[in-house]
């Protein structure tokens, strides 16, 4: 069994990470900065979902993480294409 203090530590670290990523997404200063922050947040959220899956003992969280990652990947590519000037 994974001990309680480890859960608390892991959730705290990931929560702080999400907070910092959100701050960067709000502060900008330009669109690419926000895009980088959102892209990093997608990966962090995938990790968080998998961890929550272990916490609730529900395997479905892994599938959702995969779908979420695929959507985030496509969204990042689309926004990058848009910034580049062609869509």
């Amino acid at each position: 069994m994974i001990p309680g203090w480890l859960w608390i530590l892991a959730y705290t670290l990931i929560g702080l990470g999400v907070l910092l990523g959100l701050l960067r997404a709000f502060l900008g200063p330009k669109t690419p900065d926000r895009l980088v922050a959102v892209d990093a947040l997608v990966t962090i959220t995938m990790g968080l979902m998998v961890l929550l899956g272990l916490w609730y003992r529900r395997g479905i969280y892994l599938d959702i993480a995969l779908i979420y990652g695929a959507l985030g990947f496509i969204a990042t590519l689309a926004i990058a294409r848009y910034l580049e000037g062609g869509l």
Binding site: I2, I14, L16, G17, L20, T43
Partner: peptide, 21 residues
């Protein structure tokens, strides 16, 4: 081993976000 990997993973997720910030 699983607990250690989870801890290292969340540490690196945090460090990545810190770098982004």
């Amino acid at each position: 081993v699983a607990g250690t990997l989870i801890l290292i993973g969340s540490l690196f997720l945090f460090l990545g976000a810190l770098g982004v910030y």
